[in-house]
Write a protein that binds this DNA or RNA. Sequence first.
DNA 1: ATATTTATCGTCATATTGACAATAAATCGG
DNA 2: CCGATTTATTGTCAATATGACGATAAATAT
Lengths: 253, 253
Amino acid sequence: MTINIYDGFMPESHPAPARFPVTVDVVALTVTDDVLKVLLITRLIEPFRGRLALPGGFVLAGEDLATAAGRELTEETGVVGVPGHLEQLGSYGPKGRDPRGDVLTVAHLLLAPNFPVLSAGSDAEHAAWYPVSQVLDGELQLAFDHERILVDALERAKSKLEYSPLGAAFCGDEFTIAQLRAVYEAVWGTRLDPRNFHRKATGTPGFLEDTGRMTTGDAGRPAALFRLAEAARQAAGQPVRAVLNPPLMRPRA
Amino acid sequence: MTINIYDGFMPESHPAPARFPVTVDVVALTVTDDVLKVLLITRLIEPFRGRLALPGGFVLAGEDLATAAGRELTEETGVVGVPGHLEQLGSYGPKGRDPRGDVLTVAHLLLAPNFPVLSAGSDAEHAAWYPVSQVLDGELQLAFDHERILVDALERAKSKLEYSPLGAAFCGDEFTIAQLRAVYEAVWGTRLDPRNFHRKATGTPGFLEDTGRMTTGDAGRPAALFRLAEAARQAAGQPVRAVLNPPLMRPRA
DNA sequence: ATATTTATCGTCATATTGACAATAAATCGG
DNA sequence: CCGATTTATTGTCAATATGACGATAAATAT
């Protein structure tokens, strides 16, 4: 295969600028049944055929990173639009991550409520939610450097919950304090005192807004339904300034 | 120009994978005379010839991102080794950032004590420290999307100071509490109460370590010299866990 | 020698956290 | 239908941390 490359393209550097294949990978996290789960696909081709991997794929010419990440997510799950909070995590490579050659990947982090994934036919890569703990245990093994990326994503997610309202990205539009607390507990891997959590969540100005409605049908006393306050909602890709101030810190190990 | 590309290279995606030129850019920050400064070079070629820009350049084949960032820094300033804390900031593009075509850039953040930059001859790109405020004012204009990258870098730096010991990356190995406070004030753009800052800095376990030595010659009472405690020092590229817990938050605007 | 400067220690009211008691309001099991 | 159980929510109280600021210590500057 032969490709023509425009020649007059050496902005600032003297050695021949290399071109790299660029992929986006998405670490999609969700919480279901109090368990933190990650979206993984089963690879159908070498290398790492049959192995689990993060959903992702090549960035196309003229495409932006966030666009590519959203597109890959849609392609591999059938979900329409971005189902939660998507942010860039970081870039990995290009050296030594793919046995076939240098590939740069830009990892993204998606925090979303559980969404159904397309059950693909046998000739498509099957995507499904897996408990994060099974990957960290070594029970499940990931392709490439995807475990390292997952670990970084988890640390990012844990830290985001401390000072940002993004815990709510795991919930639907309306949620109870207990549901939000379950998210914190699943992501941090610790139990939190329901009363103190309630106090902090409801007592932080600009964080939550009472909808006035209550849950019904569940065991126990009905819970009030909240939504994110206007100040905490944010146009996609905005700074997400520290709404939780002072932050809600993870217990000190 | 014609380049041969290995053909069997389509891991997960169906459309032809594009290859992109990849650059690294470095937002190098330092504090001198209580002023936050950023390292900028003057471009010698189009586009944006004569305009100020972040130091950076192409990632070479077989090179890692952090390596490339360090190499570019060395090439443009003459500094030997990485003079402070270098971390990845984020990736930008590839669409619409360079008039010549799609270029992906991976921005990095360097927090370092002031270091001298090579005074280049007239035919090399001249690197120098500029007050960040002059860029934000619009007094200085940057090439490409470099101002946006700088803004993101500043937010990252501000936030890092809150919970990590990285403020000390701006100081030398040994420093006084007042010097550290000057870093916080310059980065955050606020004044801090010297007594409360002293209490927090010296009272946080695992943050600072008294060297036993004192400053001499300066005006006023001599100050004790501190260094980062072992727990706060970290192998380059490590997580930098929250040493400041609870964090030292910026004043609420 | 005294004024000035900077560092450091101390005080005190207020805010926040962590641990936990008590009450409210539903479902559950007979 | 009723008490047991479950979950939500409101409080209480001591320990900790913060913000505002007084006071003292130890240099240099005049």
